[in-house]
Design a protein around this nucleic acid. Structure first.
Lengths: 217, 217
DNA sequence: TCAATAGTGTCTCTTAGACAATATTGA
DNA sequence: TCAATATTGTCTAAGAGACACTATTGA
């Protein structure tokens, strides 16, 4: 008998920085289908509980990472009778940005096996069409940053301009000249210097910044 | 009783050029809900017939316009319990580009009342959240063109460089200098001059072009 | 000839990239 | 002092906008 309704899910590519490199959260599936394989975190829409698919995505992330109020953005919707063995399915893909100082918290809370995956790597293969989905999420994120947005959601509350540059480079996967980068962000109103706060070390101290309250990625 | 499954639909913002101005197809709804109101063309997913939501969109466009093989791209997915009075609904929004010489064919085939709507206008109000959806589709199209893509899908098979510029300006809603525009497209491999073909009139004749076979919008 | 549009050239200003120079700390 | 990183400055080349100029047709 044919299905009358598709299976509706939200899948999330959760990006963060580990040692200045871009990584995405993957989870080993505990149940069928694709049991034992690695996949993006995701979950099924619950119309009684969710007031939108964004809600579904936030609920899934909260349960898998214990973290709220992440930056979340829709990437695309994948749909076909074949992408999930359970039948006609439709998945709305999101990407989320996790501040790098919360990575240990996420790694700690999960009862499932997790891993931080290099999105440019080819191993391990992800289940379903999640490999393609991750590529699409990365492309969307990169386009946004290349259009001038600063990925401040990947940084902790306080950071230096060098941190911003490293986040920028990690997302784009390419280096940028220091002088050119600082010129670009010189008049950026999203960056607020914290007066008197300096990061000290065995070199010239660096000015510490924070994200402006009205920052919009 | 609560619904267990959402209503899944595909809605389409079909853009074309009418007298060098950008217009979107809207249709007067013949049935409930929102009977008598104007809305974007759309239709319900049929899992037995459609192999993806792109398929749904193509099927809807074919039935409402009689035209195949349009350029079609996904914009976003809207979802909530409130956006459709029938209950929890999810709509995948597409935009499509219709060559301007096919506009009369579309206007002819429809059994419903249709109109070509100025997407910058505020009247008439569209049903459901379709006003917002149309804005999102326009924004996505403009971003693509601003990123350098030429909206050749809006033009007939043969066209002049001035036609290309007018299509470009109609999409962006702003003027561009002729010299700057021609410099930009000077080395564009998607544009092929048709040797010896000239558009004549009471002025200097214009070279006629066509779209390269491997053109990718 | 004139009107009208096609097509090209020139000037300036902004910006990105490459790269160099200076500044300030802890050890 | 030295190593290390922060911060600023300079040179150049490419590109965009403004604007003017030339070219070619029908009437």
């Amino acid at each position: 008998m044919k299905k009358l309704f598709p299976l509706v899910t939200a899948d999330i590519a959760l990006f963060t920085l580990k040692e200045d490199k871009l990584r995405a959260l993957i989870i080993r599936r505990e149940n069928q289908p694709a049991q034992g394989e690695w996949a993006l975190p995701g979950g099924i829409l619950q119309p009684e509980a969710d007031t939108s698919l964004d809600d579904t995505a936030r609920r899934v992330l909260r349960s898998k990472t214990g973290v709220d109020t992440l930056y979340l953005e829709q990437v695309m919707t994948a749909s076909s009778p074949d992408r999930d063995p359970r039948g006609w399915s439709l998945s709305v893909l999101y990407y989320a940005l996790l501040p790098s100082d919360l990575v240990p918290a996420v790694a700690g809370i999960s009862v499932e096996a997790i891993s931080w995956f290099d999105p440019e790597a080819t191993d391990p293969q992800l289940a379903f069409d999640h490999g393609m989905l991750l590529q699409r999420a990365l492309t969307t994120l990169r386009k946004k940053v290349r259009d001038g947005a600063l990925p401040l959601h990947l940084l902790p509350e306080q950071f230096t301009l060098t941190d911003v540059q490293h986040a920028y480079e990690a997302v784009l996967g390419s280096r940028i000249d220091k002088g050119a980068f600082r010129r670009k962000i010189k008049d950026e109103p999203s960056l607020l210097a914290i007066d008197g706060e300096l990061l000290r070390g065995p070199q010239r101290p660096a000015q510490i910044y924070r994200t402006a309250d009205d920052f919009k990625f």
